[in-house]
Design a binder for these strands. Structure first.
Lengths: 328, 328
DNA sequence: TTGTAGGCGTTATCAT
DNA sequence: ATGATAACGCCTACAA
């Protein structure tokens, strides 16, 4: 910057202003500065800028897995909103482990991210403490919670599961099993299970505990689960898989076994992943506003970080939608 | 850090050393420092550290789209390798636009990323210039090129397309159309088209230009393309879609139209995306080592940035694999 | 509209 | 093994 200043015949602060707040500099100087910058190939050191201004222009986000295109949609929505404002994204994947999440949060806070976006509302004590103590704006996403760290932007996993289960019940299925994800330290999967239980109870139904399976989100697990379910309980006529991955795996297995879907057994999922619509039969599932979640996070954070006071609620429920297709 | 130093009764540099190079500090002081840090909830400011040391511990990566789980796999592979070494990832999506890529590269260099990972080998002049001038380690991925900026880690899109086309030819198909992505400023799609052309020519075949379609990567485009192809050229008995997305869209459209796959028309893809195996019929496609690409990038970069001199080649061809399934 | 002085929170360097 | 001092490259505050 000193070099550029010398070349342009001005002081360094004028260079800084010409870059950050061009309208505070005369058009003439602006031109000279631009020329000097180009000539020298100057790229401002934003690290130094961050240190001096305490504005890093970076937002951190932790997702359980990057691979899963579900969260990728949210990340894409977020970047698209914040990029025009010169914000960037530091991304980390926790592999569904709150200790790993803690490590990432610590590292990102060290990088002085201006805000943190976390998946779900289940975090380690240390994570909560660090975030509160540093007074970092926080978004917990893909969930709804009564007791947020700060902002919450997502949908009710409980309601999504409850309504889909209800849909199966009112469609006339009598023996509805449940295929869910691992529950430990995962509020999304826990809430979905709770939603299923609630719907079943409300309807006055009662099944053995073994109507419920939980496994990692994996095609193969979905197949394995449905096989053991139907072996143990041949009366089962519908399965609600609280994740499309499991549902798809289950449907594939049914094809292999010659069990027709939905005639022998109906299968519903949750996510409306990209596979759901192209599957044969197309999957009845719950559509989550994945991209929108990212966009809303971006908008809320921009306001919180730079904008005027935000009067809108810090808890945003973006809802979901039951998508009825042929599989159930 | 000053507060921690005071609390521990040592100087700031000792705090720094206790964190970064614990073995250079006596076990006793280490304990005192740890206690002071915990008591104060101290989180070191890595921004200041980056400025002082010129090591940001951040690697930038630009992908055409985050949404696409293809690149997400690569990002996941990369993070998993570098996380244990305290490196982090700044991610950006260019939306298949080299001007956007340029903006992102400029911003990331401003953040003083220690290395940049780019998709493909087609970049703006300014992008190349910035990267070379700043002497930043660069990886161009998902491609092979004779004229790299620095490192190249990927596979030959030309060969992948050529071999798949060949497979269709040797399988006995006579009229093989091509469905590809948009070619402008995209070396991957261009190379795939070239590979198809090469195989067709080598086999002594000749088709009208209208045997080739190009469109955005989108289910609907795949469907639209195959409809117009078969209307214009009913003799076509196979389609090579140089992307699974297009292939899946095409297969879905065939189902709708009542054209059996592969009897009426065979369809092959490229990517081996997660959908390929679960589709009905399962998709014949080309498997790309997506996750591995990310891992190798991580390993090479770690060596380049911190390790001993790397004697292995800076151009790594990770190959691909023809996956034969029922659709062709 | 432009400039001066000082500081952001670390780490490199050189000493002890 | 520990410390004193001076950067790192920019921005804030204040001044002209």
């Amino acid at each position: 910057m000193v070099d550029v200043a010398l070349a342009a015949g001005v002081s360094t602060i004028t260079i800084s202003r010409a870059i950050k707040t061009p309208d505070k500099v005369s058009p003439d100087t602006r031109k000279k500065v631009k020329a000097a910058m180009d000539a020298l190939g100057y790229i401002p050191n934003l690290v130094a800028g961050s240190l001096a201004s305490t504005h890093s222009h970076v937002i951190g986000i932790v997702v359980p897995t990057i691979t899963n295109s579900l969260f990728a949609d949210t990340v894409e929505g977020l970047t698209n909103v914040i990029r025009p404002h010169n914000f960037h994204i530091l991304i980390g994947s926790s592999r569904y482990d709150i200790e790993e999440e803690e490590d990432i949060v610590r590292a990102f806070l060290g990088q002085r991210v201006e805000a943190m976006v976390l998946t779900g509302d289940t975090h380690s004590k240390a994570t909560r403490k660090m975030l509160l103590q540093t007074n970092t704006p926080v978004v917990e996403m893909w969930t709804m919670t009564k007791n947020p760290i700060d902002m919450v932007i997502g949908f009710s996993n409980f309601e999504a599961a409850r309504q889909m289960t209800n849909y199966l019940i009112t469609s006339g299925y009598q023996y509805i099993a449940y295929l869910g994800g691992l529950i430990k330290n995962n509020d999304r999967t826990s809430q979905r299970l709770a939603g299923y239980n609630d719907a079943i109870n409300e309807a006055g139904l009662a099944y053995p505990e073994t109507y419920k399976c939980s496994s990692a989100f994996d095609f193969k697990e979905g197949g394995r689960a449905i096989r053991s379910l139907l072996e143990a309980h041949p009366e089962i006529d519908a399965v609600f898989a609280a994740s499309d991955v499991l549902a798809v795996g289950a449907i594939q297995e049914c094809l292999r076994q010659g069990w027709s879907v939905p005639e022998r057994i109906a299968i519903a999922g949750l996510d409306d992943s990209i596979i759901a619509a192209v599957l044969v039969p197309p999957l009845t599932t719950v559509r989550i506003p994945r991209y929108k979640i990212g966009e809303v996070i971006g908008k809320k954070l921009l306001r919180r970080l730079r904008g005027p006071r935000d009067e809108t609620s810090d808890i945003v429920d973006l809802g979901f939608e039951i998508v009825k297709r042929a599989s159930a």
